[in-house]
């Protein structure tokens, strides 16, 4: 059984924000809501690394665990989604989430046709409405997976740093990259860990 995962390869991420605008584009995410962000550590100094972060679709999702109205559910392949009709926008899931993924529109704005409800990355899988329907799009954004496509952020990543899909396949792809890099001593951190001559 496939398990949908995101993986961001920090060696390849160049913080170009293609993933962020790809998400905005396909889901019509309004100004002020960021389902995905690029986070940079050590900005401007050696060791600078960036990764792209959104909802990670946890297997044992803390957001679902704390939700007082039980609006979260998980698809058979591990995508964590929620029902905005049920959501009360309390922000408890924001406390629980280890990635800062849940977003809340300001009370004055109507984001995604609803006011004040939590919004987050859907893995481009929409929400609890008929897949591909107008109702689903307006409330949750695109449903690409129902069309056999993967999340736009990863599909449009400039350097193919961000991967999305079945975790087993991702692991294979990533392992191959790591293996290729491992042959070269200039891999980040290598010299420090194992010495320059290895």
């Amino acid at each position: 059984m496939a398990k949908m995962k995101f993986l961001c390869d920090a060696e390849r991420c160049i913080e170009c924000n293609g993933c962020v605008t790809a998400c905005k584009n396909v889901n019509e995410v309004p100004w002020g809501i960021n389902r995905r962000r690029v986070v940079t550590l050590n900005d401007g100094v050696p060791g600078e690394k960036s990764i792209s972060v959104a909802c990670m679709h946890c297997t044992d999702a803390p957001c679902a665990a704390v939700c007082p109205v039980d609006c979260f559910y998980t698809t058979a392949d591990g995508v964590v989604l929620h029902d905005k009709d049920l959501c009360i926008g309390c922000g408890y899931c924001f406390y629980a989430c280890p990635f800062g993924a849940p977003q809340y529109p300001s009370p004055q704005e109507r984001a995604f046709a609803v006011r004040g409800k939590m919004d987050k990355c859907t893995f481009c899988a929409g929400g609890p409405e008929e897949p591909g329907s107008q109702a689903e799009f307006e409330k949750y954004g695109a449903n690409r997976v129902a069309e056999g496509k993967l999340p736009a952020c990863a599909e449009m990543c400039a350097t193919k740093a961000l991967l999305a899909g079945d975790g087993d396949v991702l692991a294979d792809i990533y392992r191959k990259r790591v293996l290729r890099r491992a042959g070269r001593p200039q891999t980040w951190g290598w010299e420090k860990a194992y010495g320059a001559d290895v």
Binding site: C16, N17, G18, C19, V20, T21, A22, K24, N25, V26, K149, A152, E155, M156, C157, A158, T159, K160
Partner: peptide, 25 residues
């Protein structure tokens, strides 16, 4: 109404930066 990545394109293989991923605007 939609922008899809061109995986078969020889220069980008579907990839885009922030600007390219936002051209539908």
């Amino acid at each position: 109404v939609g922008q899809e990545p061109a995986f078969d394109h020889p220069f980008c293989l579907g990839g885009h930066c922030a600007k390219g991923a936002a051209v539908r605007d």
